[in-house]
């Protein structure tokens, strides 16, 4: 798809194995967030998105969400004046009794860690991340798109947090696309990795294969990373 003539994504094909984590890495401007936006329906695009074989490419974003596509954003997109619980409850697109929603939201927040019950705008970045991640799990999505969830967190914190998300997701067979800059993080958590560079797929494979691929090393890493 193109932004005003700049081809942001060109013939990109992404396969996400069910129940697994697919990492999406690449230098800045490679089109990773754009791809997530296309999948979640925020950008128009050529080509299709298939969810369990069913085509959802022509469907509006909010419908895709109701079909089980959830996501987070590079900067946590939250309602700052509301407490964490309300923010998490927003994640459930279906009509449910408030009490049930509240209970489930509280459960998820618990898993994510100890978050103070103050308006979310007053929380630390890490806590805001936790709230957004909890929200993304509310609908028991079959596909979760994480857009640089580790940004602003230290490595161990990120591993713990995303690990928690994946553990919850495993309960309902959730698949995940993890966009990240921290290649080590992706190598730890993902079973498959796709490398994007300037809008095209550069290489696909296991973390080990990808990090040792010379094309990837030159285009992106600049140094060797032991896996």
């Amino acid at each position: 798809m193109s932004f005003r003539g700049v081809r942001a994504l060109d013939s990109v094909s992404l396969q996400v194995a069910e129940g697994q984590v697919t990492g999406l890495i690449g230098p800045n401007g490679a089109g990773k967030s754009t791809l997530l936006n296309c999948i979640s329906g925020l950008h128009r695009h050529e080509g299709d998105v298939l969810l369990h074989g069913r085509s959802i490419g022509g469907i509006a974003a909010f419908r895709r969400a109701r079909l089980g596509v959830a996501r987070t954003f590079q900067t946590p997109a939250l309602l700052d004046h509301l407490p964490p619980l309300d923010n998490v409850m927003l994640g459930e697109p279906r009509r449910r009794p408030e009490r049930q929603l509240r209970a489930r939201a509280a459960e998820l927040l618990d898993v994510m860690g100890d978050v103070a019950d103050r308006p979310v705008g007053a929380l630390s970045h890490g806590d805001r991340r936790r709230v957004e991640l909890a929200r993304s799990l509310m609908s028991r999505p079959c596909l979760l798109l994480l857009d640089e969830p580790a940004a602003g967190l230290d490595h161990d914190e990120a591993v713990e947090l995303i690990g928690a998300v994946l553990r919850v997701g495993a309960e309902f067979g959730m698949s995940c696309v993890l966009v990240e800059h921290d290649v080590e993080l992706v190598s730890t958590l993902a079973q498959a990795v796709v490398v994007l560079d300037t809008g095209r797929v550069l290489c696909v494979g296991t973390p080990a294969e990808v990090t040792n691929d010379p094309r990837v090393v030159t285009a992106y890493l600049g140094q060797e990373v032991g896996v």
Binding site: S40, G41, L42, A60, A61, F62, R64, A65, R66, V69, A70, R71, F73, A77, L78, L79, D80, H81, L82, D86, M89, L90, G91, E92, P93, R94, R95, E98, R135, S139
Partner: peptide
């Protein structure tokens, strides 16, 4: 209040996010 109130808040403050959480904005 409740669900619609949250949806309205999301519509007002974070319309893109609202769409990705199933709100028909």
């Amino acid at each position: 209040r409740g669900r619609t109130g949250r949806a309205l808040d999301a519509l007002r403050l974070q319309p893109a996010m609202a769409r990705t959480t199933g709100v028909d904005t």
